[in-house]
Design a binder for these strands. Structure first.
Length: 928
RNA sequence: AGGCGCGUAGCUCAGUUGGUUAGAGCGCUACCUUGACAUGGUAGAGGUCACCAGUUCGAAUCUGGUCGUGCCUACCA
């Protein structure tokens, strides 16, 4: 083995091997365990969120596979309608073409080309993460079989009356020319204005103050052109007698009524609201209540259409706004303009302001689907982890709106609906089937609906469509419902909720038993990672490393806002002056686990990744040590406790406890605790103590060859088991090392992946051994402390004297002398009996035992004096604390017996230690 | 406006049902190339657990409030 751990070569090698050998397919006849991948965008790129979620899904998958489950991690990708279509459109625009120019058929075929060309990138990247996905079952939402499921679901829902076509206001994206759902609209507060306009009253009416006009306030002056009423609150004394009268709508020469409606807030603005039913959701509802005319004044591009006065026609909405304000001002009808903050709705993909727009769209009547989906979570059939996300789910589900599922795009599942020339609609898988189903005359002209379905419609069917439902039920029956869905909170509504509804509706089963909601991966300062902030980290760069110049180039390429480039470059150069070192997949994954406490976003800390790369190196070198000491050496062929040293028994016991903690952590999705336990056991117990404790035994194997043979076996055994315990988290290094270690142990098996996961076995827990080693560690640490604080070179072997311990202490000393000598670097250890005089010494305490390092020639008396004073100070304040408690009668009377006793024990221990140290201090004073 | 989180060492985070000398990693200081590892070893410094009040014999932990901070949902033209 090389002296240092180098992840790059071995990771690629092992992934290929595993995949080629088919290890990712379900095997055996254990309990089924299944996770479906949240399908990434087929033409997308890996980001930190994928890295994080895949780390978790893979750990769960490998853990269960090693436990003997038939384990399937179902893989696939999503066609991502809008996102993918936008990319290809941009490519066309770049060469001076457009999708309109080349036409629908040609365009869709270009998207397929793009899918073929770039669709492999994300799946290759998922492989780099070590994800043990069953690639032989890879699916795509637009595969023939999945598309058939989409079609069937649509048609069945339609036939049942749960899908309908409606003409109502939708969120319209004027750039993408499509409707989008509420969820795809993001509203942010922006600076705007509140314009106050005078609307003249008709028929000579006046207000109470004698004005012949009323003042309305608006944030969207251009919608004036579509106003069909003015509304006031029915309780508003200022305007009560105007209700039922009319105003002359300026610029338009229309009379519009003044209506009374509770919706109007008397406190806001002037208390008068202009009503534009065609361009505002609230106005639309109000319009329906008062039977108002609906005048649409916009085109698909959000320019002014022919329903507005000629002067405005063809103007873009923002130009129209200026124009309306200008003309109102000319007419003396602009009263004032106030600055105003308002929430502006924008399309999450296009970034442009969304218009409420009256169109025909397809909807899912959602209530009857939502009810059982709510119940499934209420009843605990589906559980969210952490549980508080259930509240978010309920809040949305209990107030759910019908789902607008049609999109005016070309890339996606085309809606299986046909229209005749009178606009009658026929829903069937094909035109021919429509004719048959509806008994239509052969010469009746039919046209297919031009729209496609929302991407999330097919995603909602993902658990059962990928498992073969409804035609090929083998996998469906075996693996559905799936066990856990791992995903981010940002798609609970988009995806999780809709999966639950659709799956219950069509299969009668829940899609998954648990939903593990991960936090968001943020940068080290807690900022969301985004292209425009220039703080994106690519998981692949953390694995392979990247030069600074390449990183800068990558972060500043294809900027939507080129002016940010300079800032991003500067920030990047500051954060990564030397670029990024490649740390390997295992270290990256372990970082995710270590930060994955539940219910919390994670701030990604590269320092930790480096730390875990070092951890890999530690494992690597520990393995080298073990192999160097066992290859071509006599190793016991059976573990005989009679030949075990106390250290052998101790490490086996410690391993057992660690394995229990790890299993508990995984079962409760506490990957941070699992990683912490593994790190601590392997580094702080196996490497720091057990390997060191094995040295005196192995270096002196002639003294006791049986003991040496057994220790070699224990070194190997515990390492091998630790590798298995660690494998779900660090798949690559564990495989590489395991191959060699397993060979030494003559373990048959091709891969650690298929080995059993270590199960907790109470029988290996050895309290006695743990007590003994704790004692030994305590003595060693006390001596090292003296060494460290007294500046004695680690190279210098020193003598140590001990006294005042029990008979048992003395026996332990005799038994563990070789360990002490090696680990504390001693040239002699002596036990002073009774009142034997001790020379002037530096003193440490462990329990009652006094540990003495003679001063002669080694130690500065005044240094020892101040060391003792510091120690005494510490103990003194501890003792005062304890005595404070014990002198409080309320504490002694009320606290449980055991707690009081504990304090009493502490009091005794501290005061005895204090007395001993004070005596030593006096001796030193007499000396100096 | 409602809802959900968070605030513990310089930084990133643990801390199970209230009782620990409040922990880890990174960073920092000192010493050390000792026969697995300097991607290392040993020792050490560093915290009035945001603040206030309450419950309790006892609060980082429970309750209420304040401040700061992040997100989600709904929004008034």
């Amino acid at each position: 083995m090389d002296k240092t751990y180098q992840p790059q070569q071995l990771e690629d090698h092992w992934y290929k091997t595993w995949e080629e050998r088919g290890y990712f397919k379900p095997q055996g006849d254990g309990d089924p365990y299944c996770i479906v991948i949240p399908p990434p965008n087929v033409t997308g790129r890996l980001h930190m969120g994928h890295g994080f979620q895949h780390a978790i899904m893979d750990a769960l998958t490998r853990y269960h596979r090693m436990q003997g489950c038939q384990t399937l991690w179902q893989v696939g990708t999503d066609h991502a309608g809008i996102a993918t279509q936008m990319v290809v459109e941009r490519q066309l625009n770049a060469i001076g073409s457009s999708r309109q120019e080349i036409g629908r058929e040609e365009f869709v075929s270009k998207v397929w080309d793009w899918k073929e060309e770039s669709g492999g990138i994300i799946t290759q990247q998922l492989r780099r993460l070590g994800s043990s996905l069953d690639w032989s079952r890879e699916r795509f939402t637009m595969d023939e079989q999945l598309s058939k499921v989409v079609e069937k679901v649509f048609i069945d829902l339609f036939d049942e009356g749960l899908i309908y076509r409606g003409n109502r206001l939708v969120n319209w994206d004027p750039k993408l020319h499509t409707a989008i759902s509420d969820l795809e609209v993001v509203s942010e507060e922006e600076d705007g204005s509140l314009w106050h306009f005078r609307y003249p009253l008709a028929d000579g009416a006046t207000t109470k103050d004698g004005n012949d006009y009323i003042v309305i306030a608006t944030t969207r002056p251009e919608t004036l052109l579509g106003d069909t009423a003015v509304a006031v609150n029915p309780e508003d004394a200022r305007y009560q007698e105007l209700v039922g009268k009319f105003v002359e709508l300026p610029l338009c020469n229309r009379r519009i009524p003044i209506v009374a409606d509770d919706y109007v807030d008397m406190e806001f603005g002037t208390g008068c609201v202009k009503i534009t039913p065609a361009h505002d959701f609230n106005d639309y509802e109000l319009g329906k209540r008062h039977d108002l005319e609906i005048i649409n004044i916009l085109t698909d591009d959000a320019a002014i259409n022919e329903n507005a006065p000629e002067a405005f026609q063809g103007l873009d909405r923002f130009d129209a706004r200026k124009q309306v304000v200008a003309e109102m001002e000319n007419l003396g009808l602009l009263e004032k303009i106030e600055p105003h903050k308002l929430k502006v709705p924008r399309g999450d993909r296009s970034g442009v302001v969304i218009e409420p727009y009256l169109t025909h769209q397809w909807y899912v009547a959602i209530q009857s689907l939502a009810d059982p989906a709510i119940k499934a979570v209420e009843d605990g059939d589906i559980e969210f982890v952490p549980k508080n996300w259930e509240n978010t789910y309920f809040a949305w589900m209990r107030n759910i709106q019908d789902w607008c599922i049609s999109r005016q795009l070309w890339w996606g599942h085309r809606i299986p609906a046909w229209y005749d020339e009178e606009g009658n609609v026929y829903v069937a898988p094909s035109e021919a089937e429509a004719r048959e189903k509806y008994q239509l005359a052969a010469d009746l002209k039919l046209t297919q609906d031009a729209d496609v379905l929302d991407t999330w419609f097919s995603s909602a069917l993902w658990t059962f469509s990928t498992l073969g439902w409804p035609d090929d039920l083998e996998y469906f029956e075996r693996f559905h419902p799936t066990d856990v869905l791992v995903t981010g909170f940002d798609i609970i509504f988009f995806w999780v909720a809709r999966m639950i509804m659709m799956t219950l509706k069509f299969t009668g089963e829940i899609p998954f038993k648990k939903v593990y909601i991960t936090g968001l991966v943020r940068d080290e300062h807690g900022q969301k990672m985004s292209k425009s902030k220039g703080n994106i980290l690519d998981p692949i760069d953390l694995i392979d490393g990247i030069e600074l110049e390449d990183l800068v180039a990558k972060r500043t390429a294809d900027m939507m806002q080129p002016q940010l480039k300079e800032k991003i470059e500067k920030h990047t150069r500051e954060s990564f002056p030397d670029g990024i070192t490649g740390y390997g997949t295992d270290a990256l994954r372990f970082t995710y686990y270590s930060l994955a406490s539940t219910g919390r976003d994670i701030k990604f800390d590269l320092g930790r990744t480096e730390g875990f790369r070092n951890f890999c190196n530690k494992i690597w070198n520990a393995a080298r040590y073990v192999l160097m000491n066992t290859e071509d050496k006599a190793v016991a062929d059976k573990l005989d406790v009679a030949h075990c040293s106390i250290a052998d028994r101790w490490i086996m016991s410690r391993f057992e406890r660690a394995s229990k903690l790890v299993a508990e952590a995984v079962e409760s999705y506490r990957f941070d605790l699992a990683s912490q336990t593994l790190h601590e056991f392997i580094w702080n117990e196996y490497c720091d103590w057990y390997v060191e404790l094995s040295k005196p035994v192995l270096w002196d194997d002639e003294a006791n060859p049986e003991a040496a043979k057994t220790t070699r076996l224990v070194l190997l055994t515990v390492l091998e088991k630790s590798l298995r315990l660690l494998h779900p988290f660090m798949p690559f290094i564990t495989e590489e090392v395991w191959q060699r270690v397993a060979g030494q142990l003559s373990i048959a098996g091709e891969s650690i992946m298929l080995q059993p996961y270590p199960l907790y076995s109470e029988a290996n827990v050895d309290d006695e051994a743990e007590q003994h080693i704790d004692w030994l560690k305590g003595i060693i640490v006390a001596i090292r402390n003296i060494r460290g604080e007294m500046d004695i070179s680690p190279a210098k072997a020193i003598p140590v004297l001990m006294r005042h311990g029990s008979e048992e202490d003395e026996q332990r000393l005799q038994a563990y002398r070789p360990y002490l000598q090696k680990l504390a670097k001693l040239d002699s250890v002596e036990w002073l009996t009774g009142d034997q005089e001790a020379p002037a010494s530096a003193t440490g305490l462990h329990g009652k035992i006094e540990i003495l390092v003679p001063l002669a020639g080694l130690i500065d008396v005044s240094a020892e004096r101040s060391r003792l004073e510091k120690e005494i100070g510490k103990l003194d304040s501890l003792l005062k604390q304890v005595e404070g408690k014990l002198s409080n009668a309320k504490f002694v009377d009320n606290a449980p017996e055991a707690v009081v006793q504990k304090e009493k024990d502490k009091q005794k221990e501290y005061s005895e230690a204090l007395a001993a140290l004070r005596a030593k201090l006096d001796e030193l004073k007499n000396l100096g």
